[in-house]
Simulated assay, not measured.
Amino acid sequence: MTLKPEQMRITQVMLSRGMGGGERICIDISLALADAGHRIQAVCHPEFEGRHLFKHSGIGIHPLKVRWDYSPVARQRLRSLIKDFRPHIVHTHMARASMVGGAAGRRCGVPIVANMHDYAKLKYYRDIDHFFPGTEDLKAYLEKNAVDPQQITVIPHFSRIKPVDAVDPFSPSMVGMGRFSPEKGFDILIQALGILKNRGVELPLELGGDGPEKPRLERMVKQLNLDTQIRFAGWISDVAAFLRKGSIFVLPSRRESFGIAVLEAMSQGRIIVAAMAPGPLEILDDTIAFFFPVGDSSALADRIQEILANPEDAIKRANNALNRFTSYYGVDTVMPHMEACYRKMLNRKPTLK
Rank of each mutant, 00 (worst) to 15 (best):
K65A: 15
V66S: 07
V66R: 07
R67I: 09
R67W: 11
W68R: 13
W68M: 08
D69Q: 14
Y70M: 06
S71C: 14
S71G: 11
V73C: 00
V73W: 05
Q76K: 10
Q76M: 01
S80K: 15
S80Y: 12
I82V: 12
I82L: 14
I82N: 13
K83P: 00
K83G: 02
K83L: 02
D84A: 14
D84I: 05
D84S: 13
F85E: 09
F85I: 07
F85K: 10
R86H: 13
P87E: 11
P87D: 08
H88P: 06
H88A: 12
I89S: 11
I89V: 12
V90T: 08
V90W: 08
H91P: 01
T92F: 01
H93R: 11
H93A: 10
M94F: 14
M94Y: 13
M94R: 13
R96K: 14
R96A: 08
A97R: 03
A97L: 00
S98I: 00
V100E: 05
V100D: 04
V100R: 07
G102Q: 04
G102I: 04
G102R: 05
A104I: 08
A104H: 12
R106P: 02
R106C: 06
R107M: 11
R107Y: 13
R107P: 06
R107I: 07
C108I: 02
C108L: 02
G109H: 08
G109M: 04
V110E: 05
V110G: 04
V110P: 07
I112V: 12
V113R: 00
V113G: 00
A114I: 03
A114L: 05
A114W: 05
N115A: 00
N115R: 01
M116W: 01
M116R: 02
H117V: 01
H117S: 04
D118V: 03
A120E: 09
A120V: 03
A120Q: 08
A120H: 10
K121Q: 05
K121I: 00
K121D: 12
L122H: 13
K123Y: 10
K123L: 03
Y125K: 09
Y125G: 09
R126V: 11
R126W: 10
R126E: 12
D127W: 13
D129P: 06
D129G: 12
D129R: 09
D129V: 01
H130M: 00
H130T: 00
F131A: 07
F131R: 10
F132L: 10
P133R: 06
P133Q: 08
G134T: 03
G134A: 09
G134C: 08
T135W: 03
E136C: 11
D137L: 04
D137P: 02
D137R: 13
D137I: 09
K139N: 10
A140T: 15
A140H: 15
A140R: 15
A140Q: 15
E143L: 03
E143F: 02
E143Y: 07
K144H: 15
K144T: 15
N145D: 14
A146W: 15
D148L: 02
D148N: 14
Q150R: 13
Q150M: 04
Q151C: 15
I152Q: 02
I152K: 02
T153W: 02
V154Q: 11
I155H: 05
P156W: 12
P156H: 14
H157I: 05
H157N: 15
F158L: 03
S159Q: 07
S159Y: 08
R160W: 08
I161K: 07
I161A: 06
K162H: 14
K162W: 12
K162I: 14
P163H: 10
P163Y: 12
P163R: 11
